[in-house]
Write a protein that binds this DNA or RNA. Structure first.
Lengths: 257, 257
DNA sequence: TGAATAGTGTCTATAAGACAATATCCC
DNA sequence: GGGATATTGTCTTATAGACACTATTCA
């Protein structure tokens, strides 16, 4: 039960809106802290990756965590998420969307913290040379557990597929993210956010397969995508492959960032 | 930009987790207030309704608002939502799910308030005699605007279909709710939450039509529902209709509250 | 020319929509 | 029996999957 203002509280007897605003005291009872956490998902070579930061402070010192930060008192949630992403990764102008809010009472051992989680999608190309990333920033492969349709658990792993320790409830957040994009893939053109600006149908299919965790029929996938009207042929061909190059496509800008 | 702790903050130099927790001060900078708002949606006679409360205080005095309240410092978001729903409507044990968090800076003129919105689904039967509802509690029809697939705007109306004034961004929240349940209807057994415990296929179809805003093919709908394995015939027939009564069905408890 | 993948065509299975025929209940 | 709706059956159409065939590029 949250504390409630006493019956003789001035706010309950104020008559005009003017008076009310003047008498309202936001700090009558303790407020939780509010943060945003951003799960950046990226894709390359038929794998999904997540961006994680190595913590150098307690709690969960040396564990990995999603980039996050406090929501400023004069900052909207969306703005806070975009700012955090930009500050911690240098990326802007990417697809980013609110996911879910996590508010377990003990999710942060320090104090009560409610976090509004966001997810962002981007292709690995956007990072340029990976060696330019800061020392504590990791881009780790994600392993998705669960049979068939449902996503049971998503775990970031190291090069040898050993699971990595995550701080707070960030494992749960990552799990929700994959669940969301898997669900959304069926009805929203979300796949191209994980691709470079031009791509082959084969690449698009790889993204879909890797998000959905299934393998799809080539001819059928191709038919469906071309019929959707969201794709536009560039007339150019991919280069550097030792076999017949595929045509490059681009998404029509009916769905921007 | 949110305030950041000064560089000499004790939290940055603490060495053990013990010390860290002791030195951490959650109130270093101003925190937003956090509330939950619950959009209760109900259904009867081929209409969707929303439960709204008449405000008796500024701001938005005399406007209608969703039931809401502060999140207790020792209370999870889900618990807060269930509590608010129970306190304001007397209902418990209903389907309730987190929707989205709304955090526009100026959404509350008093002070910074971030709200985590929930939606709940229930059949009108759950209210028993509607005249037992408190004076300020209204159950108003919802009008859904938007062409075809997408929900553009949801507006509560009075008996003459005149739009009602909503406080804060609660109109936006209601719009999101209908969007959500419309999207979810396709892949989740959500319709039966808006029905009594036993119901006819016709009633189920009415719910689907009224949520989706379309009319569906009777034979096809029937086939699909029966094939889903979520329905169980009770062997009993509806009563009190002046024509051939339909068989009553029940949902198998594979998806509980 | 051979290897490897791109891209296309065809057949089948499945599910939805249209629509009509039959069944059943109340009055 | 008449009215109204429930329930079932059939036909048509749209779409996904299976699978094989042709096309094109590089080595």
């Amino acid at each position: 039960m949250p504390p409630t203002p006493p019956a003789d509280d001035p706010a309950r007897t104020a008559k005009t809106q003017q008076e009310f605003l003047a008498s309202y005291d936001a700090s009558r009872f303790p407020h939780p802290s509010v943060t945003v956490d951003v799960a950046l998902i990226t894709h390359a070579h038929s794998w999904l990756y997540g961006l994680l930061l190595r913590r150098d402070q307690h709690p969960f010192k040396t564990s990995l965590a999603l980039p996050g930060g406090f929501v400023g008192i004069d900052e909207s949630l969306d703005d806070a998420a975009a700012r955090v992403l930009s500050e911690k990764t240098g990326l802007s102008d990417v697809f980013i969307e609110q996911l879910y809010s996590f508010g377990r009472v003990d999710r942060d051992p320090r104090t009560r913290v409610i976090t509004v989680a966001y997810y962002a999608l981007v292709h690995m190309d956007r990072f340029g040379d990976p060696s330019t990333l800061p020392k504590d920033t990791l881009i780790t492969p994600l392993v998705v557990d669960g049979d068939g349709e449902d996503v049971e658990r998503v775990t970031p792993v190291d090069g040898d597929l050993r699971p990595l320790d995550l701080a707070f409830d960030h494992g749960e957040i990552l799990t929700h993210v994959i669940r969301r994009i898997r669900g959304k893939l069926d009805y929203a053109p979300i796949g191209f956010q994980l691709l470079p600006s031009v791509f082959t149908l084969r690449q698009l299919q790889e993204v879909h397969e890797c998000v959905s965790g299934t393998s799809v029929n080539k001819a059928s996938f191709r038919r469906r995508m071309l019929a959707s009207g969201l794709l536009e042929a560039t007339g150019k061909l991919e280069e550097g492959v030792p076999f017949r190059p595929a045509e490059l496509y681009r998404f029509t800008r009916s769905s921007a960032v």
